[in-house]
């Protein structure tokens, strides 16, 4: 019975309606001494005004904007960096050079032009067997320097070169052992066909294209020939894509010979010799004129 009364009293106490609570709070109104109040409030004020607290608040205030700014700078630098790399890659994109090579005929070690180390690491060669003649079409990505110096030829120099090329062409016409008029017409026709089918960029436009792609200028002899008046014939005999790749050019000449087009092959051979006088070609190479 007394237990239940105590329970009831305790529940009453928990509801803060008990005389025990009233008596406790009526004991005295004790307060901390005023000097203690002053000390504590002074300490609180000093803490707020301390330089360390100011520094901490300033850091908290600026932490978010600083973090945002830093993130933005990093993001922009990454974007710019990747953009520059993309641009370099684009400008460094190689032009596709077609060459043909007989499988049975191994290339002589002297004739192999050393490729750039970077391109050797990532060869992009596609091979496709072409029919019964056991030929392999190599699609080589010729290495190009990323930033080749652009040679700007003044107009006067260009005209001089053009005249020189015209004179050379006239001399070639006059030469008895070179091309007769019929053959010349044929060369011209072939040149027109081949230029329209195979070479989207004629040799005469080489300077423009090359400057746009920022590739190395062709050898001087080829440049002279490129500016010749009858550039169409030259274009067929020496397509623009071969003027930088003697190996591919030799393969082209061999192909002409195999097709029975000796006249154009001879013309191409002469142009090749003029362009690459020091390039080693085997004596029994098919590209050489038949004796």
């Amino acid at each position: 019975m007394s237990g239940s009364i105590e329970d009831k009293d305790f529940e009453q106490y928990l509801q803060r309606k008990s005389p025990v609570s009233e008596h406790y709070h009526s004991l005295d109104g004790i307060e901390p001494p005023p000097d203690l109040d002053e000390k504590i409030l002074a300490k609180a004020a000093a803490e707020v005004r301390s330089p360390l607290a100011e520094k901490s608040r300033a850091w908290k205030k600026w932490s978010v904007p600083v973090a945002l700014a830093a993130s933005t700078v990093i993001a922009v630098s990454i974007v710019l960096e990747s953009g520059v790399r993309h641009e370099i890659t684009t400008s460094n994109a190689p032009s596709v050079v077609h060459s043909e090579r007989t499988v049975a005929e191994p290339a002589t070690p002297d004739a192999i032009e050393p490729a750039a180390p970077a391109m050797n690491q990532t060869p992009a060669t596609e091979r496709a067997t072409r029919g019964d003649d056991q030929k392999v079409v190599d699609v080589d990505i010729a290495p190009r320097p990323a930033f080749a110096p652009q040679v700007e030829v003044p107009d006067a120099q260009m005209q001089a070169l053009a005249k020189k090329a015209e004179q050379k062409a006239e001399e070639t016409e006059r030469a008895p052992d070179v091309i007769d008029s019929v053959a010349e017409e044929r060369v011209a026709e072939t040149a027109v066909e081949s230029s329209s089918q195979r070479s989207p960029t004629p040799a005469s436009q080489y300077a423009t294209v090359s400057s746009r792609r920022a590739v190395a200028p062709p050898p001087a002899a080829v440049r002279d020939l490129d500016h010749a008046a009858d550039a169409t014939a030259v274009a067929s005999a020496a397509p623009a894509q071969y003027t930088h790749d003697p190996k591919a050019w030799l393969a082209h000449i061999r192909n002409l010979r195999e097709q029975g087009d000796d006249v154009q092959a001879d013309t191409a051979w002469k142009l090749f010799e003029a362009a690459f006088p020091d390039f080693a070609v085997a004596e029994d190479d098919l590209a050489r004129p038949k004796k």
């Binding site: 901390p32 609180a44 004020a45």
Partner: peptide
């Protein structure tokens, strides 16, 4: 600081 003063006044006793 005023907030602390209020807090202190409420809880000190």
């Amino acid at each position: 600081l005023r907030a602390f003063e209020i807090l202190y006044a409420k809880h000190k006793a």
